[in-house]
Design a binder for these strands. Structure first.
Lengths: 150, 150
DNA sequence: TCCTTTTTTTGACTTCTTCAAATCACGGCT
DNA sequence: AGCCGTGATTTGAAGAAGTCAAAAAAAGGA
């Protein structure tokens, strides 16, 4: 198991080392693809006084310095991950919003060049796979109205 | 120029034909990638009493019946388009949210199969290219603080 | 034309996220 | 080791986008 060097990460990015920030990084490490709320809940276990606003601030700082990445799937709340810079994509559950990682599908830079860029300076290509996660397949598809038994 | 058969589209989808609905489809036809607000503004030119809520209702109905598609780019408000079922993707401006169409990049179904689907029933692959549109490149990048002249 | 069902309106409300001012604390410096 | 300035956190309020719900209006089949 790789030791998580929160101190080094923060200082390396030019950020001050504080308990809330270390706790957010640790939360994200244990909960990849967590929402701000989920991070807050996790952080609150060890630091009950950290506010949700602080979690938002920290997540904003981390993403701004490249230590974290935010994923904003459709109309689901934003989620955050520490995996950055390795060009991977996401499976998103249309029902519950759960997210899973997908390593780059076609070689290393899939679909990275549109044939016509319409004058845009393209910086990044993002691939999102939409579907039902295993849990929701069972919960949503399987029990038809008539077959549900409580 | 193809004539827009709003009546046929609606009836074909099992929806009643109403002025607000025809107007929304026409707005979308003239403004591809319009937000609900933009559609409402356009519709208001001919039908000033149509509420924003109605526009939301209509857009919801149209997307539900497959007549329109909604695009939800990151933290920008949702946008809508009539082009459906032709597997194209989008260039989104990170600064202003402008959207341009990109025809399918790699063959016909790019990156459509993740090697590991993590138990998800994948229904769709969405590719989004992020970058600066031509206007924003000039507005944001070009004028450095010192070189701006009012 | 009448009647049922679908649409539209109105207005309040939810959720996620950001803004702003005041307080607090990290950490470079002496 | 202690001070101080800048950067971090808290608090509380506000904002944007979209949804919910009940009542009024209109579409279109009989």
């Amino acid at each position: 198991m790789t030791e998580l060097d929160t101190h080094g990460m923060l200082r390396g990015a030019g950020l001050r080392v504080t308990e809330p920030r270390r706790a957010v990084i640790e939360a994200l490490s244990g909960l990849p693809h967590a929402s701000a709320d989920a991070v807050h809940a996790r952080v609150s276990q060890s630091l009950p006084d950290v506010s949700l606003q602080t979690v938002y601030n920290v997540l904003h700082d981390l993403t701004g310095r490249g230590l974290a990445r935010s994923i904003e799937p459709g109309d689901h709340p934003a989620r955050y991950e520490l995996r950055v810079g390795d060009n991977h994509h996401h499976l998103v559950c249309t029902h519950c919003g759960a997210i899973a990682d997908v390593d780059c599908v076609v070689g290393q830079a899939p679909c990275l060049t549109p044939d016509d860029d319409h004058g845009y300076a393209v910086a990044e290509a993002e691939v999102t796979f939409w579907g039902l996660c295993a849990d929701c397949r069972h919960a949503v598809v399987a029990p038809s109205p008539a077959s549900v038994h409580l």
